[in-house]
Amino acid sequence: MGTATGIIRALNSGIKHIALKRFTLRYPEEKLKFVGDGYQFDPSTGVGIAGLKGRHMLFHDHCTGCQLCSIACEGVAEAIAMVKVPEEQTQNKKSIMPQIDYGKCVFCGLCVDACPFYALYMTNDYELSSFSKEGLIYTPAQLQVKPYVAQDSEIQISDRGATHG
C-alpha cells in the first residue's frame, strides 16, 4: 500500500502545482532589476561596491591613459586595447583610452579594480548583442555614454508561489 500512497501523493502534488503561479521571467518584456548602478570600485579602501558587472562606462575626464586596465585584462581575456583618441580630452596627456571588445570580455571586473583614478565603472547594461563582430567593439566614445536601462522586475514571493512581478 505504500506504493499506492506514494503514487497518489505524487499525482496530488502535480495537480496542486497546476494552480501555482508561473515562475518564468519573460525576458524581452520583463527585465530583472539589479542592485545599484553597476559594479564600482573604490581604490582608496580597496573594496568594491556591489552591482551588476555589465557593460563598462568610461569617464573621459578621469582617464589618464595609464593602461592599467589593459594590463589587467591581458591576463584574463585580452579584451581591452588602448586606442588613440582625439586631443580634445584635456586630462589625458597620452591621448590613449581603453577600447573594449565585448566578444572577448568575460565581465570579471578586474579592470575596474585596477583603475586607480575612478575612471572605469560597470553599468547595468547587459544587452550587447550585435550582428557583427565589429559591433561588439566599443570605442571610448561609445563607452562614455551612460546606458538607458529599464529594469523593474523583481522576484516576489507569495502564498501562491514566487513570480517575477
Partner: peptide, 29 residues
C-alpha cells in the same frame, strides 16, 4: 532564487570571480 541572490551579492549571475586573496571583492549590498 539563489542566482538572484548571488547576482545581488557579486554582480554576476554565474561566473562570479568574487573571492580574492584577502577577502571578497565587494561588500554586501
Amino acid at each position: 532564487l539563489l542566482i538572484d541572490l548571488m547576482e545581488k551579492m557579486t554582480g554576476a549571475r554565474v561566473t562570479h570571480a568574487h573571492f580574492v586573496p584577502g577577502g571578497v571583492r565587494n561588500d554586501l549590498p
